[in-house]
Structure formats: C-alpha cells, structure tokens
Design a protein around this nucleic acid. Sequence first.
DNA 1: GTGAAAGCGCTAACAT
DNA 2: ATGTTAGCGCTTTCAC
Lengths: 345, 345
Amino acid sequence: MDRAAGPDPQRRVTIVDVARHAGVSTTAASKVLRNAYGASPAMRAKVQQAIEELGYRPYAAARGLRGQTYTIGVLLPDIRNPFFPDIIDGITDALRDTDYHVLLGPSCDNEKDEAKITDAMVDRGMDGIVLIAPVMSPRRLERLAKTIPAVVVGRHSRSAHFDTVTDDDVAGAALVVDHLADLGHRRIAHIEHHETDPVHLAEMPNAVRADGYRKAMRARGLAVDIASTSYTQEGGYLGARQLLARPQRPTAIFAGADIVAMGVLTALSEAGLSVPGDISLAGYDNTSFAALGPISLTSVDQAGHHIGAHAARLLQERIGDRSRPAAQVKLSPALVPRRTTAPPP
Amino acid sequence: MDRAAGPDPQRRVTIVDVARHAGVSTTAASKVLRNAYGASPAMRAKVQQAIEELGYRPYAAARGLRGQTYTIGVLLPDIRNPFFPDIIDGITDALRDTDYHVLLGPSCDNEKDEAKITDAMVDRGMDGIVLIAPVMSPRRLERLAKTIPAVVVGRHSRSAHFDTVTDDDVAGAALVVDHLADLGHRRIAHIEHHETDPVHLAEMPNAVRADGYRKAMRARGLAVDIASTSYTQEGGYLGARQLLARPQRPTAIFAGADIVAMGVLTALSEAGLSVPGDISLAGYDNTSFAALGPISLTSVDQAGHHIGAHAARLLQERIGDRSRPAAQVKLSPALVPRRTTAPPP
DNA sequence: GTGAAAGCGCTAACAT
DNA sequence: ATGTTAGCGCTTTCAC
C-alpha cells in the first residue's frame, strides 16, 4: 500500500516525528496525546507545540491495535425514517467536545445485514456501539455486548452487559388511544410492524407499542383492530388499504410511526377520504414531517435528541468502566395533538 | 486495553491461529484471505476450512496498518434530506458482493465539521471516500483526493485526482421552468440555498440549479425572482414567506429541493393559500415524500440510486489504480409532474 | 517523571 | 508455491 503516492512526497507525520521534533521520547508524546498520567507541564507544552508545528494527527487505525480508536459506531435500522436523525444528533452533540468520532452503519432491515455491520464495527476496533432497535437474538446481543461496550436504544431488553435507553411505548400508545377515545372514536385501528418472533414481540418498540394499544383499548372496552405490515411508508399505505376494506371501517387510525402515517395519508387520499373529516389519523415519533403545514399530524414525541444524548453518555461511562452495573433509562413520551385528529363524523 | 475481559476468556482468533490450525504459514493464510497470487488450491482449501472452524474474521484495524481496511467512507451534508438515502442505497448495493464495508459520517453542514469528518476517515485508514456535495475549498479537496481515493458527487468540479458524478442541474432547472411557463406562469420564483463563495457559486449543485433557473427564465423573457435561504425545511418556510411578502406575488414557486418544498407547503398553508389553486409548486430530487398522496409534488428525478452506484464503481476502480485518468459522469434529470403544478389562477 | 523496548494483527519483501 | 522476517504507528509494560 502507498498512502502517499510516489517515492516519499508526503509521508504521514507520525508520533516518532513529533517526539523527535519535541526532543522527547515517543512514550512521552503518546502520554501527552492521551492526557495520561506522568507528563510534566513543560513536556506537555513541548509536545503540544511539536504537534501544532508538524500538523500531526494520530493514526487511529494504528492506535486501535494497542489502545482505542476513538470511534463510536451507530447501527440504525432505516436511514429513511426521519426519527433516527434526531437520535443521531443527540449522540453527536453529546460527543462533540470529546475525542470520539461517530460513524454510522448503513441501514439494515434484517438480522443478516445487522450481523455484518456489527461485525464490521467490531473488526474496525470501534470503542463502543449504539444499537438502535437491533433485531438480533438476545444471545447474540449479549455476546456482542461482551465483546464491545454497547448501548441499546429502543429495544426493551435487559442485561448485565449493556445499558438501554427506551421510551415508554405502552404509555405512548395509551396517550394516542385515550386522545382518540376522548374525541369520541370507538373504532380505533392500529397499523403495526409485523412480528412473529416471540422475543421481538416482547422487546421491540413496535411490538410493545402495539401491546400498549391493545391494553389501552381493552381498558376502554373497545375492540382491537390491527393491520400488520411494516414501519415504512409502503407499510402504511398497505395497512390503510387493509383497514379501508374492512366491513366496518375504523373512524381513526393509529399508525405506529410517523413514516407509516405518511403512507396512510396516500391511501386515504387515493380513496377520496378527508382527514380528519372522514377519518382521524395519529402517528408516533413527532418527526419534522409531522409538523408540516399540510400534514399537521397528531403524533407522540419521544424526544429523540434526549434519547441519543443519554445513549452517548451511558456509552462513554461503559467504555470507561466495562464492569459498571448496567443502567436502564426509560423516558416518557408526550402527545402532540395536531390537525389530523378530530371527533368522528 | 482488553478487548476481552478477564485473563483470557475469549481472545480474538488471529491469522496466526488460523495458520497454525491449517498447518501453514501466516503468509499463506494472508494470501488466501486476500485472494492473492501464490496459493495452491489445496492450501486454499485448508486455510478456508481453518477459517470456518475457528470462526476467524480478519481484524480490519490491523490490516489497515499494512494494507487496506476494506472500508469506504461516505460524507453526506444532511442526513435529514430524504434524497441522500437514495444515493447511499446505490453505493451499498453496488458494493454488496465485495469485501468493502460502508460507513457514513454524521451530517456536516459546514466546512469545519466536514474537515473533521474527512480527517477522521483518513485517520481510520479508509480505502476510499465518497463525498456528497462537499463544501471544502478546491485546494483542500485536491489535497484530500491525493491522500485518499475519492469520488465527488453532485459538485461540478473537475480534477485529475478524483472522479465526479453529477446531475445536469442546469437542464433540471430548465425542465421545471419550462413546465411552469408552458402551463402559463410568468411570475415563477425560485428558492435557493444561499451562497456567496465564488467557488460554490460555480460548483455547488444548488448554485448551478439557480443558475439554470436564471438562464431558463431569461430564455423565456421572464423576470427572475429569487429568495435566498437554505436547502432545509426551515429554509423553504422562510423563503416562501419572503416571496409571499413581495408586492407582486409569484404564481409559481420552484424550490431547489423537495425538502425545501415541504417547508414552502407549511408557509402556504399558514397563509391560507391552496396548491395549485392559488400557487403552483415544484421541487427537486423526486424523494419518496414527493410521491405522498396529500403532497403529490411535481419534482425533478435525479436517479439517486444510479448516482450512488456510479460513484461506488468509480471509487473501486480508483482504489485499484490511483493514477487512472479521472472520469466525469453526468446524468440527465427527468421531470415528474404531479398535482402541485397547474395553470395560474 | 521519563525513556527503551516489546508487541498489537496483519501484509509485504525477500528468501527458499 | 511456500515460509521467514521485518515492520506499519501506536500504546504499554517495566526499567530507571
């Protein structure tokens, strides 16, 4: 490999160059770099100056072989879902004044891709990873967390080896059901992300949300009506079509995510139905699109930025002390009523 | 550092383990890993088997020190812009059956963050990077491309050291202007991403698009009317408010990106104006949100997936031969008329 | 407080 | 075709 082209036109500045330039040992330079114990202020200054003058940047790939790479990986299930950027912003903002850099894996909607990406992150010596709603088995999740400091976001699991940050999805679903029921709706349908895996049914946010919907409906004595598709625009479209074909049409639809609601809007518009005149619609996540004037979607705010910030903080702590007891942070959602929900016709 | 906790409970399997297990040298194992020349089929088989049995995965961080890391970095300006996922999908799909992995940098909307992220990618020994609409100076861009194989997407620059993939933004803007003018509009306004840097004015896709708008308007003998904000939802909102405050209101707005058009919709809705009854609206990028039923935004399709696929292919070629002559791929946009454009009132 | 030297996992010369 | 050996740039014992 030649990182520099040609014989030696612009060889990378190394820690050896810095040490020589500062007239100290490489050990000393290394210590200054890492703010490690055992370097006098005088030496610190000399080395800092050499770094400045030479424009030195440590080669993270090499650091990784012995120490840290100062890299945090973030695994996200779907880059198209406008909720995830909120979380990512929270993570990067929390890490802004640290030495860590954030790199994102590309979307992965299945267990195999997820495994590939997490493996790739481990193989690249990342110091820690944030897993947003991962679908891997608990066994694999546990094993991964033993290999690399990890924080799991969204998924309601619990382990001694990783921290979790979740939103109270049961409460969030209840907020929506109660809101719609209070408006007078009785036929409130839900569009969920289809799950069959028993672990997912217990742990994934979408499943817990659906469960919250069921509980809230029963508490009100209302009949449950669910369309099982996926948390995508397409899934919302298909789910709405299913619901509209029912002998008894719902008067309100609770979409499990804003992006699902977007697809629902397309289906309703195609069917010539007005919102909320003919049918009410609520989403979940309170993404920036929900606030759009012509959409103005009633939604549930999960405070993605906070979620991300918590995750970053926990991960830093875990990197600092891997045997630290695991923490579970649970945040409370809030309803944001907008113009897509109104009393039934 | 201890990648494994405790004394030695699950030390990572290394190439030495593989070699020993297969009864060959590490060189041999390395050759098999890289499909390099000089390994007999028999040895290949032995090593492959050892890899399987031991569950070996090469440690990319270590490979990077001598050879490649098999990592491609993607720099993107805004993770919220729904156009970029199309490009990213194109890149990952093109790289699916290779040994390369894709990692994305977090959003960066300014030169400083961009520098940090590209530096981080170089420092992590990435084999190549795809830069989506980077804002750095030509000097820096040139220097970066000499350091690491790079493909620039969207930006209309030209260099001997990097390849480019662009869309014909002048033609795209003309498509919109012609479409609106043919419908009978004469006061067609444009919302652009504000630029002052002369280099950006010449090279950035948004500026070229604005230029195309100007040219097309002049060719039709129409008066140019531009609101200068940014390519965000917020920018669209503010831009529309500016345009609505004009003594002579436009009858049509050409937003430089779909995400801008989303903000415009909010402003129009607030002003009690109907689309396209009172005012027509067109976007750019043909994102999935443009197709949404209640939005149904006329837009320009840039074929993001193709753009990404081209970029990935060019980058692979450049990684293979860094002194290969630079290529410029220019794709042609297509108008996708929908329900937000109609004859003026 | 400071530095010499070993070595992380891998690849690339250079033998053979 | 195969193996031996010397590093890549950094951190980390372990001396002093």
